[in-house]
């Protein structure tokens, strides 16, 4: 009997440890939820004009400039980005769209951000988020959080208005800031490529 009790205790302890560690680890990795497809997002956010695609490879100076900005820390990746661009018959820029990933501890959030020819935010939407953070992002999407960014520029302040500061949990507010950062980074990148880089 004593041997049986020792065996049972050993099993229980090992099982408890295994579940404890494995459960904690699995909490951070959950499948991706695609909220909107690429094609449908491009069609919606760039509804008019001739469509182009522009592959961007930032040079060292551009990388340095962006890396120096506090909101780009750890998000530069390999410095490669892709813009979908719409132009009219005379090659005049109508708008540009970028899918910006904001890397988080729970996996990436992808925000599609469209800018008008002057770099002002025309529209934005979350296209991909992991399953676990979905519960924190959903309240923002249900309440049209992304409409807050319409008309803003790269110089927008990264701060939540009173409407979003109150009445939402800490994780939701955190993801609101992450989404805001993705929008701001998109506008900053647009400025670098289309305004300062004269791709206009």
């Amino acid at each position: 009997m004593k041997e049986n009790r020792l065996g049972f205790q050993a099993i229980t302890l090992t099982l408890a440890l295994a579940l404890l560690f494995s459960g904690a680890a699995w909490a951070h990795v959950t499948p991706n939820v695609q909220l909107a497809g690429i094609r449908e997002t491009v069609a919606k956010l760039l509804p008019s004009g001739q469509l182009y695609v522009k592959d961007i490879q930032l040079n060292e100076e551009q990388k340095r400039k962006l890396d120096a900005l506090s909101n780009w820390k750890g998000q530069l990746g390999d410095g490669e980005f892709k813009f979908f661009v719409s132009r009219d018959g005379g090659d005049r820029l109508l708008g540009a769209l970028v899918f910006m990933s904001e890397f988080t501890y729970h996996g990436p959030v992808v925000v599609a951000v469209a800018m008008d020819a002057n770099g002002k935010i025309a529209d934005a939407r979350v296209t991909d988020v992991q399953m676990e953070p979905m519960e924190w992002v959903s309240p923002l999407l249900r309440n049209d959080y992304l409409r807050e960014f319409k008309g803003k520029t790269a110089s927008m302040e990264l701060a939540l208005g009173p409407k979003w500061e109150n009445g939402y949990g800490e994780m939701t507010r955190g993801y609101a800031m992450l989404i805001a950062n993705a929008v701001k980074r998109s506008a900053q990148l647009f400025d670098m490529v289309f305004i300062n880089g004269s791709a206009k």
Partner: peptide
């Protein structure tokens, strides 16, 4: 193809801004 959504195009030349025309 890096930088986000992949695409294909019919080989049309890039415009003067280095952008490749595509359709939806």
């Amino acid at each position: 193809e890096h930088g986000g959504a992949p695409h294909t195009h019919d080989g049309s030349p890039a415009n003067r801004f280095g952008e490749t025309p595509i359709t939806l």
